[in-house]
C-alpha cells in the first residue's frame, strides 16, 4: 500500500461540467472517533469546507443522512467484526475516492494487538457473556479488504493534513503528504536528534512523515504512530537500539504500537519475539 494516490485515481475537475459541489461521506468502523472529530476540530475552516463540499453523510455532525454515491469518503477505523466486512464493501461501492484516516483504518490500530493473541481468551477475560460478542480473530486495515485511493496516517490524524487532503481533492492536486521519514521534518524545524544527542530509541527514521516531528520536539522518541514509510529499514534501526542497550522485549514493544500491525513493523516486532 502506498500513501500517494495512483495518478489515475486523483479526479480532475472538469471545468465544463456544471458546478456541483463534491459530496463527502464520513464512515467509521472499529475506532475511537478521534480522527473523524478532527474534521469538527477544524473550527476556523469548517465553514469554508462546508462551502466547498456537501457533507452528505457524517453521523457525528448531522442527523439527516443522504444516500450515496459520495465523491470523497473518509473512512475511520479497522475491520474487526463480521458485519464490518460487508459494510466496507458497500462503502467502497458508493465512493469515488476513498481515503482511510488514522492508524486504525490504515494499519489496524492498537486493537490489532489482539492479532498476536487468542481473541476468544480475551473475550472471556473481558466480557461476562462473551457469547453475545461477535468479533473476528483479527483487526485489519481497510486496505486489506477494499481498494484505497489515499491513506492519511496518524493517531490521531492531524487536522491540518485532513484539511490538506480535502483541499487537494477539491482543487485536484496530489496532497502534500510526503512518504518520507519523520527525520526530514525534525531537521527542517531545527530539533536536535534525540537518538544521537540523548541515546533515546526513536522510530523517526522508519516512520512516515506528517506529524511535523512532534514527539522529538518534546524530547521523546517517535512512537511510529504514522506507521512505516516506504523502504523502512527497521532491521538496521533495531540493531542500533540493541547496541544502545535495548533488550528483545523492549524492541517488540517499540515496534508493536499504534501501527504495529503494518507490515514492516509487524515483521520487525515478530523478529524479536522469543522463539
Amino acid at each position: 500500500m502506498t500513501a500517494s494516490p495512483t495518478s489515475s485515481s486523483v479526479p480532475a475537475s472538469d471545468s465544463e461540467a456544471p458546478v456541483r459541489k463534491p459530496r463527502l461521506g464520513v464512515f467509521k468502523f472499529a475506532s475511537c472517533d478521534g480522527c473523524q472529530l478532527s474534521l469538527l476540530d477544524l473550527e476556523d475552516e469548517l465553514l469554508a469546507v462546508a462551502g466547498a463540499i456537501d457533507i452528505a453523510y457524517f453521523p457525528e455532525a448531522r442527523t439527516a443522512m443522504l444516500p450515496g454515491p459520495y465523491d470523497l469518503s473518509l473512512v475511520e477505523g479497522s475491520i474487526s467484526s463480521p458485519e464490518q466486512l460487508e459494510q466496507v464493501q458497500e462503502v467502497r461501492r458508493q465512493s469515488r475516492f476513498l481515503v482511510t484516516i488514522g492508524a486504525c483504518a490504515t494499519a489496524g490500530g492498537i486493537q490489532a494487538l489482539r492479532n498476536w493473541a487468542d481473541s476468544a481468551e480475551y473475550l472471556r477475560a473481558v466480557y461476562a457473556r462473551p457469547e453475545y460478542i461477535r468479533t473476528l480473530e483479527t483487526s485489519t486495515p481497510i486496505a486489506a479488504h477494499v481498494r484505497v485511493d489515499f491513506e492519511l496516517r496518524g493517531c490521531p490524524i492531524s487536522k491540518e493534513q485532513l484539511l490538506e487532503v480535502i483541499t487537494a481533492f477539491a482543487v485536484g492536486r496530489r496532497p502534500n503528504v510526503k512518504d518520507e521519514s519523520v527525520c526530514l521534518e525534525c531537521k527542517r524545524r531545527g530539533t536536535v536528534c534525540v537518538v544521537v544527542a540523548r541515546g533515546m530509541p526513536c522510530l523517526g527514521p522508519v516512520t512516515h512523515a506528517g506529524c511535523g516531528a512532534l514527539c522529538p520536539a518534546y524530547d521523546r522518541g517517535c512512537y511510529g504512530c504514522f506507521g512505516p514509510r516506504e523502504r523502512a529499514n527497521t532491521g538496521s534501526l533495531a540493531g542500533r537500539f540493541r547496541e544502545g542497550g535495548a533488550g528483545e522485549p523492549e524492541l517488540v514493544r517499540l515496534f508493536r504500537g499504534f501501527t504495529g500491525y503494518a507490515e514492516a513493523f509487524r515483521k520487525e516486532s515478530e523478529a524479536h519475539e522469543p522463539q
Binding site: C183, P205, S236, L237
Partner: peptide
C-alpha cells in the same frame, strides 16, 4: 545499504 535507513539526516545536516 543494509545499514543505511535512507532517513536523510546526513543530507539535512
Amino acid at each position: 545499504a543494509a545499514r543505511c535507513l535512507a532517513c536523510a539526516n546526513c543530507t539535512m545536516v
